[in-house]
């Protein structure tokens, strides 16, 4: 039995299809990432799996329990770290965890022991009795991860765990997520940071417009693109593209750059120069990244402009608190 089993999940909000037939199987102990741009349906999917939303159609089971019919048992099996902060910032870290433990019917001794354990893990033990209001964004995130683990869930959901954090703090959070392997908990995380999915996940599902477009381990995904990536900037890209395609190259235009997939890039580059009458401004090649995987499967760049706007407003909202 897999830890998470999703079959043909669909969620509509009026005429908008947020999740469009997602199927997943995640084994116990795996760290699995849903990678995609904002609005791809990641948070909606997690909300359904955490019993906060009902699916329009399809089926999902967590730890063997149906998310609609056995919601109470699902809730007992999961922990979740939301995208938006959800701590009570008037209480201390310890009190937040204690109340959480009570809501999961943990005994007093169990709660006391576990609070020490999870705070130790996220290195907040020395701040256990400080009011959460005095915590930085990174500390709050760590405390939320600790709270998600408090009741020893089988499955932990992390919805954009490092959204709005600076790169250094992000690294720090990654280390804690890595440690979750030792806890033996199954982790489903969503992210729109490529390097986050690449660094943390055993397996990744790339999600775009409510659909899973590719799935596999980071290296499998990169291999599936087929070899290296050559990128060319030139004055007349349209014309250049036509010539390359007619010469049998696997090329496409992404924004104003020509992207070519190549088995052995270093041998191909001189040939490209030979074909080109166009003035080549620059030419680079590298091994494929997850970003290239995304481009390969969706034919578009991983758009970040919108994301940045949403993120900026979220961060503003966080700062206000």
């Amino acid at each position: 039995m897999p830890a998470i089993e999703v079959r043909n999940l669909v969620k509509r909000f009026g005429s908008i299809v947020a999740v469009n037939g997602i199927s997943l199987e995640i084994e116990y102990g795996e760290i699995f990432a849903l990678l995609g741009p904002n609005g791809a349906g990641k948070t909606t999917t997690i909300s359904i799996l955490a019993t906060l939303l009902k699916p329009t159609s399809g089926e999902a089971k967590i730890n063997g329990y149906d998310v609609v019919k056995e919601a109470a048992k699902v809730r007992q099996s999961i922990g979740i770290v939301f995208q938006d902060p959800s701590l009570d910032d008037r209480l201390t870290a310890r009190e937040n965890l204690d109340i959480h433990g009570r809501l999961y019917h943990m005994s007093r001794e169990e709660r006391q022991r576990r609070i020490e354990e999870v705070l130790e893990m996220v290195e907040l033990l020395d701040r256990a009795d400080s009011i959460v209001k005095t915590f930085s964004g990174g500390m709050r995130r760590r405390l939320e991860i600790a709270r998600g683990l408090m009741h020893k869930p089988k499955v932990l959901f992390l919805d954009e765990p490092t959204l709005g954090l600076d790169p250094q703090t992000r690294r720090h959070i990654w280390e804690y997520v890595e440690k979750l392997r030792d806890e033996g908990v199954t982790v489903l995380l969503t992210t729109h940071y490529m390097e986050e999915a690449d660094y943390l996940a055993d397996r990744i599902a790339i999600i775009d417009a409510g659909k899973i477009v590719a799935e596999g381990s980071p290296s499998e995904l990169k291999d599936s693109v087929g070899g290296d990536i050559i990128k060319i900037k030139c004055s007349d890209a349209e014309n250049m593209l036509k010539k390359l395609v007619s010469n049998g190259y696997d090329a496409m235009l992404v924004d104003d750059e020509i992207v070519i997939k190549a088995k052995e890039a270093e041998k191909m580059i001189p040939k490209i120069f030979a074909i080109a009458d166009e003035e080549i401004k620059s030419i680079t090649y590298k091994e494929p990244s997850l970003e290239d995987v995304f481009i390969h499967y969706t034919g578009k760049v991983f758009r970040d402009e919108e994301v940045d706007e949403i993120e900026a407003s979220k961060m503003k909202w966080r700062m206000r608190r």
């Binding site: 906060l52 809730r75 999961i78 939301f82 959800s86 701590l87 009570d88 959480h100 809501l103």
Partner: peptide, 13 residues
């Protein structure tokens, strides 16, 4: 507004 309601709603209570 501060998200604590969501925290309560995902617990089994």
């Amino acid at each position: 507004e501060f998200g604590f309601l969501k925290e309560m709603l995902v617990t089994p209570i």
